Simulated scan of single mutants.
Amino acid sequence: MKEHEWFVNIFKDEFEVEGELEEISFESNELYLDEIDESLIPNEMRDGLPKVLMFETMVFEDHEGIEWIGAIAKDSESKEWLLKIVIRDGETALIQLMVKEN
């Protein structure tokens, strides 16, 4: 799955952390935009996003015991990637908007 490959590669490229696909747990959830905390998707990034997002969420604990959470927020109908998010021990380490802002 390309979301999982992204998650492993983002460690190497952005955070210099090694991880393997076999070490990652993952799940998918559909969430309404108004249910998502502003700390995860700030209000200024919400314009143009659909009301319902599909989250492909991946979790990994590195050899130092740091928990990493990666999420790809996708349009639930088209499956287009809209946001890339990485959380390191509860703090947002990366959030990248993939859609054009209006």
Rank of each mutant, 00 (worst) to 15 (best):
D47R: 04
V99D: 09
R46M: 07
G65M: 05
H63E: 13
E23V: 05
E5M: 02
F11W: 14
I10E: 13
L83A: 06
L33N: 11
W81L: 04
D75Y: 00
N43C: 09
E77R: 12
R88P: 00
N43E: 15
I41L: 13
A73E: 00
L33K: 12
F15H: 02
F26P: 00
N43I: 10
L33P: 01
E38Y: 05
Y32P: 04
L31Y: 10
G65C: 08
N9T: 04
E80D: 11
S78H: 01
L33M: 10
W81Y: 08
K100C: 06
G48S: 08
W68V: 01
D37H: 11
V8P: 06
P50H: 03
E22F: 06
G90Q: 08
S25H: 04
G70A: 03
E64T: 09
M58W: 07
L21K: 11
N9Q: 12
M45W: 05
I10A: 15
G48E: 07
L82H: 00
D75A: 02
E22K: 14
I36H: 07
L33V: 08
L94A: 06
E77M: 08
E16K: 15
G48H: 02
P42T: 10
E77Q: 12
I10V: 15
H63S: 13
N9K: 12
E23K: 15
R88I: 05
F55H: 11
N29S: 13
I69M: 10
K12P: 02
R46Q: 05
K79E: 14
W6N: 11
M1F: 06
K79N: 13
E35P: 01
G90P: 09
E22L: 08
K51S: 07
W6L: 14
L40K: 12
I95W: 07
V86Y: 02
I41T: 05
E30K: 11
H63T: 05
I36S: 03
L94T: 05
K100D: 14
V17N: 00
F15T: 00
V52G: 03
I41F: 05
M45P: 01
E20W: 07
D75V: 01
I69C: 07
V59L: 08
I24H: 13
V17G: 00
S25K: 09
Y32C: 13
E30S: 06
E67Q: 12
M1E: 14
V86Q: 02
A73L: 13
E67I: 14
M58Q: 12
S28G: 02
M45K: 09
M54A: 14
V17S: 00
E61M: 05
K84P: 04
T92L: 14
A93N: 02
N29E: 13
F26A: 10
A71V: 10
W81I: 07
M98H: 07
S25I: 10
L82N: 00
E27S: 09
M58G: 12
E56F: 08
H63F: 10
E20Q: 14
I41Y: 03
W6H: 13
F7T: 01
L83T: 08
L53A: 04
S39R: 15
G48R: 02
D62Q: 00
E64W: 12
K51E: 09
E77S: 09
W68L: 01
A93H: 03
D13Q: 13
E91R: 15
P50M: 02
M98C: 11
I69R: 15
K84W: 10
H4L: 15
E77F: 08
E61A: 03
K84Q: 15
L94E: 09
K79V: 04
G90A: 11
P42C: 09
N102G: 14
K2M: 11
